[in-house]
Nucleic acid binder design. Structure first.
Length: 500
RNA sequence: GCGGGUGUAGUUCAAUGGUAGAACGGCAGCCUUCCAAGCUGCAUACGUGGGUUCGAUUCCCAUCACCCGCUCCA
């Protein structure tokens, strides 16, 4: 049975996992709110990541514990930091659209052949057009040779002249729109007056502020290379096309580790982190067959990266026909020392690490396992969503007990007699340690069904026998099987199940 | 941003140029000793804004949101 995004989105809304932001105003493209259960789920994944990274980081490849510290930096930083990282300059490229071919081009990549005599039409070519091709097309469209033209990139040409330019993939002039700026960064103004001199940006990724704090952390935390700095927090990108539920949102949450090491140790640590991160996803319930590893081809790598492995998950929306598809859940990148180099240059501050034992100074290289918390939540939901026609709800969420937003529900078998006070007592005891639900109303079948739909792994039911012998029924979500255990054992039971 | 599609209770659907029905879900009650059972009742919707019209949920336009494709994804 295939998983359908429509059903998953409907369940998320119906049961309070994820809502459209500003829903009552018709929503806002690219923004989502987490409801009562979605928040619990997201916190569970977040806390687990933090535990695995900062509180109990893995044992290193040499068998020794490794060292990672956490930070929680401001979303708005000095705008110069984004100039240094390349975010301000790199994504300000003006783009033009062709109304006829529906293609989009970077204006500075389009080369326009303008007739030297000013007579006739100008012809545009995309950046990778070859000489022979250009000559042939010019002859066909204008009956002139390349020598009769002067070449200029489109961004240098007045918009009024666009009506005379034949676009790269069409035969008639005037189909190109005026250039538009596409910058992925949200900007804002610091202080009450809006103006260019107090313009600032919402961070487009959380790793930026980690690098800005590199020196502060080294100076204050007694860390030694190799070590890591981790951060969880919001990031903002003005995506061209937010799509696929929360997968590509304009406001989202990232969990990033910057692992600082010496250049010669890069391959060792790179492999180490790929392995650790894979273990992580498997331990929170993502099955191996739903994961896919993409060694990003050289030509698609970001300019600062010499190697990146994308950990992709088999999201339902990525499916093409009958073929399963995958989309990025995490990226593990070797960033070199690009960021520290840039920040050292732009800030004028020395950011070199001093290795006392070796008596040398250097800018460490960085391995960056970077994942989307909100993407992770979506992956957990998609993974957990299980169609089962043999049960009343028709579907259940197969979360691991550790990730499940509710660990257990306490259900008095009937709303009468003495079941309720006993259930209430158990509930109050359990909620001190676990996220649990007390559900009294309606018949027991409906309540089991409800808990199935929100992925609660266990239900404890109080009946007449409970009053006699202090035992409760444990009903297991996936198998729907039941066993009786003593009320005193309930906490231990849950502890053991959650720990795995 | 472009092209195509969709928009009616929480969800899934229905009907209609004279302001809307159902199923399931929710809530309340009855009943119930273990899987959405049964009975009774209640609440909840025409995405938003214009226009045409005596009258628009229905026709037209715009807008917003979602889905598919393209583009984008640093």
């Amino acid at each position: 049975m295939t998983k359908d995004m429509k059903d998953i989105v409907a369940l998320c809304k119906r049961r309070g996992f994820i809502f459209a932001a500003s829903d009552i105003y018709g929503g806002l493209n690219g923004f989502w709110d987490y409801g009562p259960l979605g928040t619990e789920l997201k916190n569970n994944l977040r806390d687990r990541w933090w535990k695995d990274m900062v509180l109990c980081p893995p044992i290193g490849p040499d068998g020794a514990p490794i060292e990672i510290v956490g930070v929680d930096a401001s979303i708005i930083q000095n705008p110069k930091s984004w100039e240094a990282s390349g975010h301000v300059g790199g994504f300000n490229d003006p783009m033009v659209d062709c109304k006829e071919s529906k293609k989009r081009y970077r204006a500075d990549h389009v080369r326009v052949y303008l007739p030297k005599d000013g007579e006739g039409q100008a012809v545009a070519f995309d950046k990778d057009a070859e000489e022979a091709e250009i000559e042939k097309r010019l002859k066909k469209l204008t009956k002139k040779a390349p020598a009769d033209f002067e070449v200029e990139t489109l961004d240098k040409i007045d918009v009024e002249k666009f009506t005379n330019i034949i676009g790269p993939d069409v035969k008639t002039p005037g189909t190109l729109t005026e250039p538009r700026q596409f910058n992925m960064m949200f900007h804002t103004f610091v202080g009450a007056n809006a103006g260019d001199d107090n313009k600032a940006y919402l961070r487009p990724e959380t790793c930026g502020p980690i690098f800005l704090n590199f020196k502060n952390v080294v100076d204050s935390s007694r860390v030694k290379v190799p070590f890591g700095i981790a951060q969880i927090g919001k990031a903002f990108r003005n995506e061209v096309t937010p799509r696929n539920f929360v997968f590509r949102s304009r406001e989202f949450e990232q969990m990033e580790l910057e692992w600082f090491c010496e250049e010669e140790d890069v391959p060792k640590w790179f492999d180490f982190w790929v392995e650790q991160r894979t273990k992580f996803w498997e331990s929170v319930g993502i099955t191996k067959d739903a994961l896919h590893f993409l060694d990003v081809p050289k030509e698609e790598l970001a300019h600062y990266s010499s190697r990146t492995i994308d950990v992709e998950y088999q999201f339902p929306f990525a499916q093409k026909g009958d073929e399963p598809g995958f989309d990025e859940l995490e990226g593990i990148a070797h960033r070199g020392n690009y960021d520290l180099t840039k920040h050292q240059e732009y800030s004028g501050q020395k950011l070199e690490y001093f290795d006392q034992a070796e008596n040398k100074r250097y800018l460490p290289h960085v391995i960056e396992p970077s994942t989307g918390l909100t993407r992770g939540v979506l992956a957990l939901i998609c993974q957990a969503y299980t169609v089962d026609e043999n049960r009343p709800s028709g579907v259940y969420l197969n979360f691991t007990p550790e990730m499940a937003p509710k660990k257990a529900a306490i259900l008095p078998l009937t709303a009468k007699e003495d079941h309720v006070p006993t259930a209430q007592k158990l509930y109050l005891e359990l909620r001190e340690e676990f996220t649990v639900d007390l559900d009294i109303k309606q018949n027991i079948g409906k309540r089991y069904a409800r808990q199935d739909e929100i992925g609660t792994p266990y239900c404890f039911t109080i009946d007449n026998d409970t009053l006699q012998d202090q035992t409760v029924t444990v009903r297991e979500r996936n198998t729907m099987s039941q066993e009786r255990i003593h009320m005193d054992k309930v906490k231990d039971f849950l502890r053991e199940k959650i720990r795995g």
